[in-house]
């Protein structure tokens, strides 16, 4: 499968501090790639390098097949959409005026404004001044702006962090539709359930190093202790290891008609991260 992003031995230092320690990963065309890590782990630095806002100290980065470390042609940025915490809006202007500017910069028909506002559930607020909007609404405006030019690659840094559950679901649906239409998504989030629901593959980054990279399902299986939780009529909840004795015990419960429920114990993505790094994701 074609890679949209290829990162080889990427290293970035700020003075004596090394933010990224020779990381390597690829993002495949059409996938939603989760990039998870705690604050200060190197997520934002990576996004800034991938979007040509920062230069790297060593390594190679290809975006859309172009070596962005050795080019002065930044036309590939026209195919990229970016939503980060630092994506600002013109507060004295209306939602429509904010989007109109970028429609004109990207040479997109103005009718696209209503389409993207519909996608982020803000069509009825298009005449509102940005300074009158809540944080969640502003976040949806910045997402709408990132979608205006139908980017081939979308960088989303905590896209739903300020949203209520209803709007989070709405945004998730929009992102799935966008992804189904061919947009590759590079997503960073602290929300493990969001990563699990949306991402095809996930990389955990910690202290500038990638500690694991795979599909959510493979990661859970890889770090599972292969135990099973059973609930029985007399004993209640019981955790059983999958060995010969454990299997015999489950058989016995089934034969005696005592078994009420049975679940495999797979770790959550949060559990895996704690296991890998000894810290949490916040």
């Amino acid at each position: 499968m074609e890679n949209i992003i290829e990162v080889k031995q990427l290293m970035k230092s700020f003075g004596s501090k090394t933010a990224l320690k020779h990381i390597e990963f690829n993002v495949r065309k059409g996938e939603i790639f989760g990039f998870l890590g705690p604050s200060g782990s190197g997520k934002t630095t990576t996004i800034k390098i991938l979007t040509s806002q920062l230069t790297l100290s060593a390594g190679e980065v290809h975006v859309f097949g172009k070596d962005i470390t050795r080019t002065k042609d930044f036309s590939h940025l026209n195919r990229i959409g970016i939503l980060t915490d630092n994506s600002g809006l013109y507060e004295r202007l209306s939602v429509y005026d904010n989007l109109e500017l970028f429609c004109k910069l990207y040479d997109v028909p103005l009718k696209r404004i209503d389409e993207v506002l519909g996608e982020v559930n803000l069509l009825q607020d298009k005449k509102a001044l940005v300074k009158q909007l809540s944080k969640g609404m502003r976040q949806r405006v910045t997402l709408a702006r990132a979608l205006l030019h139908k980017p081939d690659l979308l960088f989303l840094d905590e896209p739903t962090s300020a949203l209520d559950p209803k709007n989070t679901l709405h945004i998730h649906d929009s992102l799935r539709k966008l992804n189904a239409a061919g947009t590759t998504i590079f997503l960073t989030t602290h929300d493990m359930s969001e990563a699990e629901q949306l991402c095809d593959r996930i990389a955990f980054i910690h202290e500038g190093e990638i500690s694991a990279l795979d599909t959510p399902q493979n990661l859970r299986l890889m770090y599972s202790d292969h135990s099973i939780t059973v609930v029985t009529e007399h004993n209640g909840k019981e955790i059983i290891v999958q060995d010969a004795a454990g299997i015999e015990k489950i058989n016995e419960y089934m034969v005696n008609g005592q078994l009420q429920s049975i679940h495999s114990n797979e770790p959550t993505l949060g559990d895996i991260f704690v296991k890998l790094t000894g810290g949490n994701l916040q």
Partner: peptide, 16 residues
Amino acid sequence: EEKEKHTLRVLMLSPA
């Protein structure tokens, strides 16, 4: 103000 509100960054990442 463009720097403080992070709008200059967004402009720079556009085709302008």
